[in-house]
């Protein structure tokens, strides 16, 4: 099975240094585990190859770098090369870490290539005759098993197995193939670039003038999202509570 993993020019959220996007490295690991290291090709389109080059150290054997000018639209070049490579599976991160990377591109690419796209894969398994079993990560730790026919395009979720560690010798062994791409029309949308900042968590507020203990209670109760704490319950009671909770959040179907 031939797999292409898309790499974007990520930046480290704290240092701002070029850095492969963790979820793309996780995609690389999924691809390696599924098809073996020799079947995986990395693909990047952009002006410099700094961050994607590091993916070689994380287990990528071969990287194709489509060199293009800053601001050019990577979509036509990627689509052209992917049509030529004709991989069974294309993997991308669910979101990038800098500029216009990641987010929307997999969808645009899937439309251009006419492939099905499935978001947020957490693990992959080979199915029967040209199918792929995908475990899809849903909110609150839920998982959904999906079987889809290849070829397809998947985005990978951070809940997938952790990336392989950087290995100096692997980075040294990996090969890069650079191709110059004819100028493409600049991407249409105007985008504003801002420094990364962690999103503030919404915490419930206690009434004005409440004591510190009340404020703490309000904050922590909101964070626990309405669960119930049972101390040392009987096993049957515990099981009933868990089932009721799972039905409540829709993991299990409601009875009758």
């Amino acid at each position: 099975m031939k797999i292409v993993v898309l790499f974007s020019a990520g930046r480290h959220p704290a240092s701002g240094a070029p850095c492969p996007v963790p979820v793309e490295l996780q995609a690389l690991r999924l691809a390696r585990d599924l098809a073996g290291a020799d079947e995986v090709i990395g693909l990047h389109a952009g002006p410099v190859d700094g961050a994607p080059l590091d993916a070689l150290g994380h287990g990528l054997g071969r990287l194709i770098h489509l060199r293009m000018a800053q601001g050019d639209d990577p979509l036509p070049a990627l689509a052209q090369v992917l049509e030529e490579l004709a991989p069974d599976l294309i993997l991308a991160g669910r979101i990038g870490q800098g500029g216009e990377d990641g987010g929307l591109l997999p969808y645009a690419l899937a439309r251009r290539l006419g492939r099905p796209i499935l978001a947020d894969a957490a693990s992959l398994g080979a199915g029967d005759d040209g199918t792929l079993t995908v475990e899809q990560a849903l909110p609150r730790g839920a998982r959904r098993r999906v079987v889809l026919r290849l070829p397809a395009l998947l985005t990978v979720h951070p809940a997938a197995a952790p990336a392989l560690p950087f290995t100096f010798a692997a980075a040294r062994r990996g090969t890069v193939e650079r191709r110059d791409i004819a100028p493409a029309p600049a991407a249409a949308s105007e985008m504003e670039e801002r420094a990364y900042r962690p999103r503030p968590k919404l915490i419930a507020r206690a009434a004005p003038g409440a004591s510190a203990a009340e404020r703490l209670k309000a904050a922590t109760q909101a964070a626990s999202s309405g669960g119930r704490l049972l101390v040392d319950p009987a096993p049957e009671e515990a099981a009933r509570e868990i089932l009721a909770h799972l039905r409540g959040i829709g993991v299990l179907r409601r009875r009758g």
């Binding site: 704290a14 850095c19 990336a163 560690p165």
Partner: peptide, 12 residues
């Protein structure tokens, strides 16, 4: 693996 990767990309 994680601390080594952070060292590589963030010097920390």
């Amino acid at each position: 693996g994680r601390p080594l990767a952070e060292l590589r990309y963030a010097d920390e």
